[in-house]
Structure formats: C-alpha cells, structure tokens
Design a binder for these strands. Structure first.
Lengths: 331, 331
DNA sequence: AATACAAATGATAGGGCAATCATTTGCCAA
DNA sequence: TTGGCAAATGATTGCCCTATCATTTGTATT
C-alpha cells in the first residue's frame, strides 16, 4: 500500500486537496465542521505530510540551524537544552552542526544546511569567516549569534559580557586578599580573549601595578591541560597566589595539580573557574566560578530568531552572569 | 536574480537537464569532456542543487538520523565525534536528536525525522517503545543500535558488553585485595543494569558469598549524585572498602565525597568508574575506569549503516573495552 | 561493410505540496 | 428581496529534480 497523499485525504473527506492542506496548516481558516472531517480522514488514511514536497512548493522549512563549536565542551549542552526546549514549544525542529572551532568547517556546514532555507540560524560567537558572513547576509533568514556580545552582529545577539565576568571574578579575588593573581587560558576564542582582557584591565585598574602572570595556549581546553598550564605558570611565576581560569575544565585541572603538588586550596592558591558547570561546585574544595546563563541563552536565542518583530527589537540582548563564590577563593 | 536551476546549467552547457544531473551525481557515467563543460557551467551560473526537489523526486536523502539519550553525558560526545568523522568522509550529513532518555520523545523524534526517509538511523540501546520499533521496522532504511549488545536487534548492533566490563572491573578490584565491594548506579538504563548484573554475578562467582552492597537510583547521574549515593551506601554498609560506579561522573562524586569524609583513596576506599572519560584520569588520585570504545562505535555505526552489504554481515559487532587500572584501586 | 553491443545522452513524466487567483456560499443591510 | 461583502472552498499551475525508458553515438567483431 502506498503512502497516503493530500489527494487521498481529500477524497476521503470529500473536499479538495488544497483545503486539506489549509485545514492542517492554518486550521483557523476553515470551518470547524470541515476541520473535523479532515482530521478524521487524516486519521483514517494515516496521512503524513511529505516534507520534501512541502519544502519544494513553499521553499520554506520549519527548522532552525544551530551551529556550535563543540559538543564535548559542556557549556553547549545547556545551551542546546534551552534551544531544544524552546524549539519544541515553538514546534520547530533543530538541526545541529558542530563546527569544531573551524571557520572553514562552519562555512561548509552553512552551505550545506542553508539549503533548503531554514526558519532561522543560531551561531556561536562572531568569528565567522568572510564567506560565511556573506552567505548569512544573503540568506533570507534571521541570524542570532550567541554567547558573546558580538560587536558587529549579523542580525541579533544573545549573550553576556565575558569581559565583565572576568573583571567581576578578579575583583572578588582581590577582595578575598589574593595579591598575585594569574590567568590560565586555553582554546583562546574571542570569548576567552575577552576574559583575558577583563583580567588584565581589572588587574591594572586595581592599582597593584602587578606584572601580568598568564599562561595561555590555543590547545583544546580540558582538565589535563589545566594541570599543564598551572605547571608552566608556576615555573614562570612561582609567587602566584591565585589563578583565574578561562573555563571550568582548566580550573579543575588546576585544582588537581595543586593537590598533586601539595598546595592547599584556597590557602596557598585560590582558584576561580568560568561557566559554573556543576562539577566545580562538587569538587573538594568547591570551586568559585562565574555562572553563565547558558540555558536562558538557548531559549532566548530561539525566541529571538523566530520573533516576527525581530526588526524592531534591540539587536543585542545581554543576559548577564553571576559570580558564585565558594571555598576555593576564601582563604 | 533568481537562483539557477538544472535547466539554466543545462542551457549554459548546451546539454539536457538530465545530463547535468548525471554529471553531478554520477560523474563516472558521462564523458570527461561533458563533465568539464558541466562543471564550468555550474561555476558560471552559481548553481546549487535544490535538496527539497531532489528528495521529492528520488524520495531519498543522504542524511543519517542519530538519536542519543543525552548531550550532557560526555559519553556521547565521543560517539558523535566518531559519527561525524565517518559521516564526513562518506559525504552524508547527520541529523542529531536528543531523546532525553524518554521513549515517547524518541518516538516523536523518529516520526519527525524519518520524513523524508534518511539513508540510515543510528539509535542508542534497545529500549525503544513498541511504536518506535514498528516505525523503524516499516521504514525502508537500515537501523544500527549502538552502545549495548542489544539482544533482539532491529537490524544491526555496534557496541560492547557492559556486563563483561563490570565483571572485569570487579575481578580487578578483588585481585587488588578489596573484599567488601559496593556498587553505585544512577540513570539505570539497560546498560547500567547490565553493569549491575556484571557486578552481582562476578561477586557471586568469586565465592566470597558476600551480601551485595548497592546504592542505586534512577535519577540523572552526575557528580553530585555520586556523593549522595556514597553517603547512602556507607550508611547501609559502613564496611564497604571499594566502590564500582556505573559511570565516571558518579565515580568522581564518590572520590570527592571520600575527600570530604577524610577517607583515603585507594587505602580506605577503592574506586572504579566506567567509560574512562578523560577527567577521571586527571583526578587525584587518578581513577581506574573501564574504557569504552566510544569513538570507534560512532565510526563503525556509520560504516555499518551505510554498508551496502549490510544484509550479509554479522548482526552484532562487539568492539570490546579495556580496563584502565590507576591509583584509585591500588592500595 | 554489416552487425551487435555498449556507452553516452536525451525526452517524458511525475513526485506531493502550496501560492495564487477564482469561485461559491452565507449573511447582513437596505 | 436584492446587492454587496466577507468567509470558505476550489482549480490551476509551478516548485526542481530524478526515474525510466528511448535514442543516438561510438566501438568492436565478423
């Protein structure tokens, strides 16, 4: 038995095909009686709309393309959860692409996923290459960039200030009494660089006139690397008494390395992470971290991208952050 | 300017539309000269194939649907990495769905993602509900179930034995001298249950005739829960001298809880995790874990699902596991 | 040179839906 | 009642590509 089509349903309901189409897509536009008749016919025939045909005829889809730079970075789980939840209630599907922090890969994904044209695109950050930006500008679909407060957004931005987050963390660490605070960073994308800038400027503004103590690399940030970077930081700056980490994996690695070296946290070394991934609040000692609104960013990104009044809204939505102070920075 | 279609390219190259189609899809079937002419015409017109039309005409897609139960569980990152890599080299796109451990959600995702029909489906485990299984059986597309060695596979299975993994871990712990080994489990899906079974049987077979010491829940497994479960385990069985955990997050939580309680690992309590997620090998002390071939499972699942000889291959592919012994179980 | 056959290319006919414009129906005001 | 208008429904056409079958061209064989 072949799959039922609109025409089959139409015959069953004794109406025209286009009416069935309307009854399903825009139920408000048909009479109640007819709607019910169509529903019955759909049930009876087991009709399932053919998306390919629908796309071809309307050159539209109800799916949102979401590009993230990593799936192993737990930061994006929460973002994706927010996106999924919002997408579900808006009745759109999502299409996830993993750019692996590679602009070229991002461009390829866009080329591939923008056909057929999605209802919207959600991207991470503003580090797209020129070709990608051109593609996005020419595509007739709304674009939301998330995480960063990107300066020259394609359309809209939903995120928070990484710079302010780092500043806030540093002020707290200074208040807690640390004097020779270092910075450890990896995977130095624009967000991590903003955090580094925040560290630098807050340090400078504090009047301590300290030399900057940093250990930074472009490798993929993970727990192991945190230990490695602490080692290199302490080699260059043995007097470090605290470390601000560009993310929580690094912070955990730093904590473990301290334990290996017999350094007491928070007494000998204070540690602050970034993102507040849940695991850091369970470590011993519990680690201070800048809590970022990842779930909300996801939700809000979907709402923004689907918003019909998208053109009349502020282009940048700052969802803020919260510093969660814990034992690791309270000597 | 409208987008170029096959016909435009055909005019440009002075051939028929169908020939252009062939030149692009099956270049071996046309002459070299013509292929080059078509390529030039494509470049000149900026032609991009319309996937919706292609799908409609052929009722095929070159995308693979991948359903995982969680994106926050780091187990699936690696699997997805393997899938992505293999998919890329096979030139197919992937469509990721997150079932959130909910069979109904899985069913909804299948209903939605099986239209248009994908080139294959990759699912986690065998815990689909009856409706989902029926949908998959009727869909004319290969299905590969991963992670578990599912007993009654829909088509094919790529995974490893969770049961054997647990048995192997337990044997190691017994060999290391632990006598009163407990089990901590959460998110007790069939895989976790297999691990529990492995624990039970290995314990029984060891002849120790020990009572079983378990603390198990169906909540989402995370680091925090590890601590909670250890607390409950030690309340009921204060004599526990080691813990096998159904995954690494729990193991880490157990380690942290031990630290809070002043219990020395591995002397007072031995800890073994499951999956070997990278982070456990960095903790202090480094934690023993059953290393599972997640990347390979992903790769292999794609190869299997796309394999034209799929019907003549063994239905179950066991990729094995490796116990990585570290400090946490060497008193 | 004639035949046979394979390789290369073409013509036709949908695939299932939605945009657009056209028609019918129902209802109200005058 | 009739004209007018909105609401509801219908007919036609096109979206762009590929499956299928048909034709042409090229090559080898006798």
């Amino acid at each position: 038995m072949k799959k039922a089509t609109l025409v089959d349903v139409a015959k069953e309901a004794d109406v025209s095909a286009i009416t069935v189409s309307r009854a399903l897509r825009t139920p408000d536009m048909v009479s109640t009686a007819l709607r019910q008749r169509v529903e019955r016919a759909v049930a009876k025939t087991g009709y399932v709309p053919n998306k390919a045909a629908s796309m071809l005829a309307s050159s539209k889809t109800n799916s949102i393309v979401v590009l993230v730079p990593s799936l192993s970075n737990n930061v994006f789980d929460e973002v994706l959860r927010g996106i999924e939840e919002a997408a579900r209630s808006a009745n759109v599907t999502i299409q996830i692409g993993n750019t692996m922090y590679d602009p070229l890969r991002e461009q390829q994904l866009l080329t591939s996923l923008l056909n057929p044209l999605p209802a919207g695109v959600i991207l991470t950050g503003g580090e797209q290459n020129e070709a990608s930006k051109r593609i996005l500008q020419q595509a007739q679909t709304p674009v939301v960039q998330i995480m960063d407060l990107v300066k020259d957004p394609i359309h809209k931005v939903v995120g928070f200030s990484n710079y302010d987050g780092a500043v806030s963390a540093l002020h707290h660490m200074l208040d807690a009494g640390y004097k020779r605070i270092g910075f450890i960073g990896a995977q130095m994308d624009p967000r991590a660089q903003d955090r580094l800038r925040g560290y630098r400027n807050a340090l400078y503004d504090s009047g301590l006139q300290e030399p900057e103590r940093t250990s930074v690399t472009n490798e993929k940030a993970d727990v192991k690397l945190g230990g490695t970077l602490l080692t290199s930081l302490l080699t260059q700056h043995p007097d470090c008494d605290a470390v601000l980490c560009s993310n929580d994996d690094l912070a955990l690695g730093v904590l473990f390395e301290c334990q290996r070296r017999g350094l007491n946290v928070p007494r000998d070394v204070g540690i602050c992470g970034f993102n507040d991934l849940g695991i850091v609040s369970e470590a011993v000692p519990r680690v201070t971290s800048v809590c970022t609104p990842r779930f909300e960013i996801g939700q809000c990104a979907v709402e923004t991208v689907l918003d019909p009044h998208i053109n009349t809204r502020a282009p940048v939505l700052d969802l803020g952050f919260k510093l969660h102070v814990r034992e690791s920075t309270q000597p």
